[in-house]
């Protein structure tokens, strides 16, 4: 290329770009391709290093037995075989499923609160803030508040149950109730989140369509189902995504409220992975990685669905 520049306009080497003169470097010619690559580079590099690479590392680690100190020892599928036989893992998996299903209740609940609050009365901003409040406070605080609420001796729940003549209930100490108790605590902030998403969504609802529907005699549930909700589709999609992610990440509430107990009945996969790999009595890195891989595969189903659905939207938009 240097030679080309040294011999501009040389008839024996027909070069379509040569007429632009010597400043015309490779960099200049390719800047259309380079610029986006350059802008993408930081993101891509960080994504590779902090997301893709650790994922591959976890996959690899799940085939080893390693305590984090000595030499890792390759054991093939042994960790996964142990998982199949591990009751604590089974409990965690079922709990994850409960979380996924019940956490979705936040979406309709959020929608109805949003519909309820979507009106103009004095002080509506205050009411909205009050409903939004649980989302602003930390999950740790939510966990503490609900632990006190459920407390078997002085908790509000048992006081109220006492008034209507129902026996004391130790929600967080009962292996059959504990997961539902924690999910209820998690729904409080999650509902607020969905509510905000729907409140902004409702602002975008086309009043003319509502007007037209009203002229056609639609009202109540029909109006909601056929006119409002279809227009809220983008908000619903986002609410669905954040709720699924929230359900799979449910770690802090469990850690604060029960520490996985009683006797491990409120664990979910993420908590179990932490316990096995990183907690005081853990440090089975390979086994923890195997749990993480399973959790990743579950998440992958949802991620694939989200990506596919966004891709479809994109295609439709064009």
């Amino acid at each position: 290329m240097a030679q080309m520049r040294l011999a501009p306009g040389n008839g024996s080497t027909p070069d379509p770009t040569s007429h632009r003169g010597p400043q015309d470097s490779w960099l200049r010619r390719n800047r259309q391709t380079l610029a986006p690559l350059l802008f993408l580079a930081p993101g891509v590099i960080f994504f590779l290093f902090y997301v893709i690479f650790p994922i591959l590392q976890s996959f690899n680690l799940s085939f080893y037995r390693w305590d984090g100190l000595g030499e890792p020892q390759f054991i093939g599928m042994e960790n996964y075989r142990e998982l199949l036989d591990d009751r604590a893992f089974e409990v965690s998996l079922w709990n994850n499923l409960k979380w996924l299903l019940l956490y979705l209740l936040a979406i309709p609940a959020g929608l109805f609160i949003a519909l309820f609050l979507n009106q103009t009365v004095t002080g509506i901003r205050l009411y909205k803030s009050l409903f939004f409040f649980p989302f602003v406070i930390s999950q740790v605080v939510v966990g503490l508040v609900f632990s006190w609420f459920y407390d078997p001796t002085f908790g509000l729940l048992n006081q109220v149950l006492g008034w209507v003549g129902l026996g004391p209930l130790n929600v967080l100490g009962d292996p059959t109730l504990v997961t539902y108790g924690i999910i209820a605590a998690g729904l409080w902030p999650q509902t607020a989140y969905c509510m905000i998403l729907y409140l902004t969504g409702l602002n975008a609802v086309d009043p003319e369509q509502v007007e037209a529907a009203r002229l056609d005699g639609a009202k109540g549930a029909k109006m909601l189902w056929y006119v409002i909700i279809p227009q809220l589709r983008p908000a619903t999609f986002v609410a669905f995504v954040v709720t699924i992610i929230g359900a799979l990440r449910s770690f802090d509430l469990i850690s604060i409220m029960t520490n996985g107990g009683p006797f491990g009945s409120s664990r979910v996969l993420s908590f179990y992975m932490f316990e096995k790999a990183l907690s005081e009595y853990g440090f089975r890195m390979g086994y923890g990685a195997a749990i993480a891989v399973v959790l990743f595969l579950i998440m992958l189903c949802f991620i694939a669905y989200f990506l596919w659905s966004m891709y479809q939207d994109d295609k439709g938009g064009r």
Partner: peptide, 13 residues
């Protein structure tokens, strides 16, 4: 550690 965590969970149960 590993035995302790499994066992103590059993004691609680």
């Amino acid at each position: 550690a590993e035995m302790a965590s499994v066992a103590m969970e059993g004691f609680q149960e």
